[in-house]
Design a protein around this nucleic acid. Structure first.
Length: 955
RNA sequence: GGGCCGGUAGUCGAGCGGUGAAGAUGCCGCGCUUACAACGCGGAGGUCGGCGGUUCGAAUCCGCCCCGGCCCA
């Protein structure tokens, strides 16, 4: 593979830095290349009138620039094309949002990818969807802004760095804070350029001059201010709570960062003997015997007949024989184990809740350290320092030796693991910062109810509401050096807490001047939840914030609906008083060919960067949207890539064919060709099919269903335009049908092709840009050309109806040739007997087309009384009959007629059964009844004709 | 345990109350053509997961069940 030349091969960071530098001079009027999109057109599509040529768009000299029209290579090779156009777009500032837009805007933030590594196929899907929307908006003349950025990704990055250091033999935990931070910065500096290079190689139309990073100065400012405001509003608190502790990361993680998985384990039943002696006692089932040292009680259900008498008695915790009370609590499931639950309040959420309901119980001591090794005064010497697995094994042994092990059995149960490190979570009491979410969630719930934010597909709103309504407080602090330090300071003398961007000069309580900064950092999402406005400059009152906020659309995978989308909405309403975006589009999750979710763990995710290098960005992008659904989980396969490449190659060859058909100096299509009712039918037909495609593409995108758009374009361009229209039009284009026909076909071909490239551009931007420049065109870049109007060619549904018998005749006669094995070199005589005047007229006028495409020697139109030659092969269609003269040597026979008869008979029976139902006649709408009557008559007639053909064939 | 989403030709999927159920890929046959074999033409392949209900009419709406997947506990 040849490495693409130009910017894609450059160091993207340097490019970004250049953009930043240039960005400072943005206010110089005219420094930014004009985008040449008249604002008046920004209203709605279609309303703006003319779609194509704009007199107000100057055509610059093309000599020597990247914009010069290249001759198309025989073969579609995406690499060089993509590099060239990416550079051209950038040089023209095509994606640079105006500083002071005056018309409607369309803004999005790119969900900032983590600097953990390289981008995944999931990113590629989201970026592809976003680019489709933003490019369409740009072509519609809206002032568009797509803000790129990357996320420092807190603990996720730390996990990667820790892993890499471990491979080098360095234990992350052994480093001091500064060394840790350096290692993390090194990682970021290494991966950020790679990620940016990938975004660039994909051709995504982001505005690099607005590039942001979640740890840059602006983010620091925004994060600190946000925390201070929330603290002052009384929404932030610090306290000791049971948190999800990740012993590997040595940090708390939020509920959302915990995955629950079914895993095989072991259920241990241990006997807690009565304190007053004897072998008898309560049998307690547990999967965590190593936490026995933290037990403060044994709980039974108060209504449980077996155990009611035990409440109030005392049992001995095995191994250590420490006495604890038996308590009654309704949370105990009497059906689980023997109905008795050991209570370890510092290491289990349910236990904690039970504990809090029983104030008589003493607060237990801690039994685990930060690494989840046993420690503390309640742990016997031989267990000190053991990790959980070792401690569990030893505890089971100890129980057995003591004779307290009643039973052990295999047990499958749900295990909580840290999403980041995959380590088993240890619920643990810890002092952390929390954010009260209830007050933040309320306006969001109302806002979504009022329709201020719409979710697509809409069905996700139920899941969204359920989570929002049961929202839990958010643990904001992380025990890490990678992230924004929590701006909280403690007086060295009296411990008084001060929250603010800087440490106070003196303690408000004791006037001491020495302060200790909080050692923790924020959860990475505490910065990204403000991204839609923080990335636009908040809290500064920047122009971008004024012009482009709230944004219009957010596209992301629904796996981060709660992590990110919901929280962004909360931050948006709370900090800015507005929803941060009006529409949210959730993409599905990418799956592999076996339907498995793609993950690093399985190693089944192809590297999108490699795919772009090998197959091209357009190919990958089209493969992601066609034919895969984008809002359901879609399987990704090489077959999809091949399909996309084949389609783009088809398009390539289509334009390669069309260009030489146009006379030199052909001007760009100013509008649809002049096609009166006397115009060639095929020209009218393809223009109408094009118009229908515009409608379908618009409809699909407006409905947030980009797959519908690619499906419509694929079908139209390949099957209607290339396979049918061009084949038909070749005769006219040759000039053999005369100059008017030729000019009509030329104008039609050029118009439909040029406009189709515009329609396809949001989905395959590079190749369409390349092909567009090979055609007569108006304007410098397709990326900035006007979006086609669905009203520009007037609707002409009659053309579709008229074309039907022609296309069907061609298909049926070809079918006869193939099925009955007519010799290849033989061009037989064909006959059609139209069933009506309209069909007769159309078939007569299109006789040449049919003759040519079926390769007949001649096509004869038979009157009602005319007979075809004896032993002609035949087919029966709704509009009439068609025949092919068999050669004297004879040909093969097919049972096509008999099969068709059977099929029609079934349809007729169904239609008749319907019409025989009095309920149907009485209740169905009249037009439906009429349609069935028409169908019945048509089928009956056709069946009779078919029977006659079968009889003749039998003789 | 609770909830959500899906089940349409071998495979992937569109359609989501009234059309004879798109399309892609794979398969079979044939390749003579003013671009394209990464292609053209023709063809075969479906009780729309199962059962019941609502309706004049169900792939489409409702209920139950089965199977996949996801989320929450």
């Amino acid at each position: 593979m040849v490495a693409p030349a130009g910017p894609a091969g450059d160091d993207p960071l340097r490019v970004v830095l250049e953009h930043r530098a240039r960005g400072t001079s943005r206010d110089r009027g005219g420094a930014r290349p004009a985008r040449h999109v008249p604002r008046a057109r920004a209203r709605r599509h279609g309303a703006g009138g003319a779609g194509g040529a704009r007199a107000d768009r100057p055509v610059r000299a093309r000599e020597g620039s990247a914009l010069s029209a290249p001759t198309l290579a025989p073969r579609f090779d995406p690499g060089p094309i993509e590099a060239r156009w990416q550079r051209a777009w950038e040089e023209h500032g095509a994606f640079r949002a105006p500083e002071r837009p005056t018309g409607p805007t369309f803004a999005m933030v790119l969900p900032p990818p983590n600097v953990t590594g390289v981008l995944t196929l999931g990113h590629a899907l989201g970026d592809t969807v976003m680019d489709a929307f933003v490019r369409q908006a740009r072509m519609r003349g809206l002032a568009t802004l797509w803000v790129p950025g990357v996320d420092h990704a807190g603990l996720a990055t730390q996990v990667e760095v820790r892993r890499r250091l471990a491979r080098e033999g360095v234990r992350f935990e052994s480093l001091d804070r500064e060394a840790k931070r350096e290692a993390l910065v090194r990682w970021k500096e290494e991966f950020e350029p790679r990620i940016l290079a990938q975004i660039r190689a994909g051709g995504f139309s982001v505005d690099w001059s607005r590039y942001r990073y979640t740890l840059d100065a602006g983010s620091v400012h925004a994060t600190r201010l946000a925390f201070e405001r929330l603290y002052q509003a009384g929404l932030v608190y610090r306290g000791e709570r049971l948190v999800n502790w990740d012993p590997k990361l040595r940090s708390a993680v939020s509920d959302l960062e915990v995955e629950h998985r079914e895993e095989d384990g072991e259920l241990i039943v241990a006997r807690y003997r009565w304190a007053d002696g004897g072998e008898a006692g309560l049998d307690v089932a547990t999967v965590r015997p190593e936490t026995i040292f933290g037990d403060v009680a044994v709980a039974v259900h108060p209504e449980d007949e077996r155990h009611r008498a035990a409440i109030g008695r005392t049992v001995l915790v095995p191994i250590v024989d420490r006495p604890v009370p038996v308590i009654g609590d309704a949370a105990v499931d009497p059906a689980f184990g023997a109905g008795a639950l050991k209570i370890t309040p510092r290491h289990d959420l349910v236990d904690r809740e039970i504990f809090l309901r029983h104030p008589e119980l003493a607060e237990p001591g801690e039994i685990f350290d930060d690494d989840a090794r046993l420690t503390g005064p309640s742990v016997p010497a031989e267990f000190q320092g053991l990790d959980r697995a070792a401690a569990r094994a030893r505890a089971i042994d100890a129980l057995a030796v003591q004779g307290r092990l009643v039973r052990r059995e295999p047990y499958r149960h749900s295990v909580a693991r840290s999403e980041r490190s995959d380590e088993v979570i240890e619920p643990r009491m810890s002092v952390q910062w929390f954010l009260r979410m209830g007050p933040l969630a309320a306006p969001v719930i109302e806002g979504v109810r009022r329709g201020e934010v719409r979710l697509h597909p809409e069905r996700w709103s139920r899941t969204f509401f359920r989570w929002m309504e049961g929202i839990q407080d958010w643990c904001l602090s992380r025990q890490s050096v990678w992230g924004h330090p929590i701006p909280a300071f403690y007086c060295e003398e009296c411990g008084t807490l001060a929250v603010g961007p800087e440490a106070p000069t003196s303690c408000p309580k004791c006037q001491a001047v020495r302060f200790r900064a909080d050692p923790d950092v924020f959860d990475t999402w505490f910065t990204s939840w403000m991204w839609p406005f923080a990335a636009l400059g908040w809290p500064e009152r920047t122009g971008d914030l004024a012009h482009y906020y709230p944004t219009q659309l957010l596209v992301t995978g629904r796996d981060i609906m709660f992590f990110w989308v919901a929280r962004m909405m909360m931050a948006g309403y709370w900090f800015t008083g507005a929803a941060p975006f009006s529409d949210v589009y959730f993409t599905g999750m990418m799956r592999d060919e076996q339907g498995r979710r793609m993950s690093k763990h399985l190693g089944n995710s192809p590297d999108p960067a490699a795919l772009v290098r090998e197959r091209g960005a357009d190919t990958l992008r089209f493969a992601l949207l066609f034919p895969n659904p984008s809002d359901e989980d879609g399987a990704f396969s090489t077959a999809a890539l091949d399909g996309a490449r084949n389609f783009l190659t088809k398009l390539w060859n289509l334009v390669r064919f069309a260009v030489p058909q146009l006379p030199p100096g052909t001007p760009p299509p100013a509008g649809p060709p002049e096609l009166g009712s006397a115009a060639p039918l095929a020209d009218r037909w393809i223009v109408e099919r094009y118009r229908q495609t515009v409608v379908e593409v618009d409809r699909s995108l407006a409905a947030f269903a980009p797959t519908g758009a690619t499906t419509a374009l694929h079908g139209f361009l390949w099957h209607d335009l290339a396979d049918r229209y061009v084949e038909i039009a070749k005769e006219a284009l040759s000039g053999r049908l005369g100059e008017p026909a030729r000019r009509s076909a030329q104008a039609t071909t050029l118009f439909v092709l040029e406009r189709s490239l515009r329609l396809l551009h949001p989905f395959a931007p590079h190749v369409t840009e390349e092909l567009w420049h090979a055609l007569p065109h108006d304007g410098e870049l397709l990326a900035c050309a006007a979006w086609p109007s669905a009203t520009e060619p007037p609707a002409d549904p009659a053309a579709i109806a008229a074309m039907e018998p022609v296309l069907e005749t061609i298909r049926l006669l070809r079918n006869v040739r193939a099925e009955e094995r007519f010799p290849i070199g033989l061009n037989p005589r064909g006959y059609v007997r139209p069933g009506g005047a309209e069909a007769a007229r159309v078939l007569a006028s299109e006789r040449g087309t049919i003759t040519r495409l079926v390769r007949l020697s001649e096509l004869e139109i038979l009157g009602a009384g005319d007979a075809p030659p004896a032993h002609a092969a035949s087919r029966v269609a709704p509009f009439g009959e068609c025949f092919l003269e068999r050669p004297p040597t004879g040909v093969g026979r097919s049972d096509a007629l008999a099969r068709e008869r059977e099929r029609l008979a079934e349809l007729l029976a169904k239609a008749r059964a319907r019409l025989a139902d009095p309920g149907f006649i009485a209740r169905a709408p009249p037009e439906v009844v009429a349609e069935h009557r028409r169908k019945e008559a048509e089928l009956a007639g056709r069946l009779a004709t078919l029977d006659r053909h079968l009889e003749e064939a039998a003789t």
